[in-house]
Amino acid sequence: MERHHVVPKSEGGTHTVPVHPMCHRTIHAFVANRDLASSYATMDRLRERDDIRQYLRWIAGKPPDFRAPTRRRNA
């Protein structure tokens, strides 16, 4: 597990939540820190994004030790 700053440290955040390393990389590949701070400052709000929702549906069926490369989304 890794600790994800719900509001990024660069945007003044201090609160963290545990997330799987692959999920953590995906969050940061899909969403810019500025957007995390302004529009997705809770995990529930983040899960409402279509791309995150699709990713979570996809990853849910994978074994805990599954690994795959994370690709940045084009903004």
Score class of each variant (00 low, 15 high):
Met1Leu: 15
Met1Glu: 10
Glu2Lys: 14
Glu2Ala: 14
Glu2Asn: 14
Glu2Gln: 14
Glu2Ser: 15
Arg3Cys: 11
Arg3Pro: 06
Arg3Ile: 13
His4Pro: 09
His4Tyr: 12
His5Ser: 03
His5Asp: 01
His5Gln: 05
Val6Gln: 00
Val6Glu: 06
Val6Asp: 05
Val7Lys: 07
Val7Tyr: 08
Val7Ser: 06
Val7Met: 05
Val7Cys: 12
Pro8Phe: 03
Lys9Glu: 09
Lys9Pro: 10
Ser10Phe: 11
Ser10Leu: 07
Glu11Ser: 08
Glu11Val: 13
Gly12Thr: 10
Gly13Phe: 09
Thr14Arg: 04
Thr16Ile: 10
Pro18Gly: 14
Val19Glu: 09
Val19Leu: 15
Val19Asp: 08
Val19Lys: 07
Val19Pro: 14
His20Val: 09
His20Asp: 11
His20Thr: 07
Pro21Glu: 03
Pro21Gly: 03
Pro21His: 02
Cys23Tyr: 08
Cys23Ser: 10
Cys23Lys: 03
Cys23Thr: 10
His24Lys: 02
Arg25Ser: 00
Arg25Ile: 00
Arg25Pro: 01
Arg25Lys: 00
His28Gln: 00
His28Pro: 00
His28Phe: 07
Ala29Asn: 06
Ala29Gln: 07
Phe30Asn: 02
Phe30Ser: 02
Val31Met: 01
Val31Tyr: 01
Asn33Tyr: 06
Asn33Phe: 08
Asp35Val: 01
Asp35Thr: 02
Asp35Ile: 01
Asp35His: 04
Ala37Ile: 00
Ala37Met: 02
Ala37Thr: 04
Ser38Met: 07
Ser39Cys: 14
Ser39Thr: 07
Tyr40Asn: 04
Ala41Ser: 14
Met43Asp: 03
Asp44Ile: 04
Asp44Glu: 13
Arg45Gly: 06
Arg45Asp: 05
Leu46Pro: 02
Arg47Ile: 10
Glu48Arg: 01
Glu48Ser: 04
Glu48Lys: 04
Glu48Met: 05
Asp50Tyr: 07
Asp51Ala: 10
Ile52Asn: 00
Ile52Ala: 04
Ile52Trp: 03
Ile52Gln: 04
Arg53Pro: 06
Arg53Ile: 06
Gln54Ala: 02
Gln54Leu: 08
Gln54Ile: 05
Gln54Trp: 06
Tyr55Gly: 02
Tyr55Lys: 06
Tyr55Asn: 02
Leu56Ala: 05
Arg57Glu: 13
Arg57Asn: 13
Arg57Gln: 14
Arg57Lys: 14
Trp58Asp: 10
Trp58Met: 10
Trp58Thr: 04
Ile59Gly: 09
Ile59Trp: 08
Ile59Tyr: 12
Ala60Thr: 13
Gly61Leu: 05
Gly61His: 13
Gly61Lys: 07
Lys62Pro: 07
Lys62Asp: 11
Pro63Val: 04
Pro63Glu: 08
Pro64Asp: 11
Pro64Tyr: 07
Pro64Cys: 07
Pro64Gly: 10
Asp65His: 06
Asp65Lys: 02
Phe66Gly: 11
Phe66Thr: 12
Phe66Gln: 12
Arg67Ser: 15
Arg67Val: 15
Ala68Ser: 15
Ala68Met: 14
Ala68Leu: 12
Ala68Trp: 14
Pro69Asn: 09
Pro69Tyr: 06
Thr70Ala: 07
Arg71Val: 11
Arg71Phe: 12
Arg71Ile: 13
Arg72His: 12
Arg72Pro: 11
Arg73Thr: 13
Asn74Met: 15
Asn74Val: 15
Asn74Pro: 08
Asn74Gln: 15
Ala75Thr: 15
Ala75Trp: 15
Ala75Gly: 14
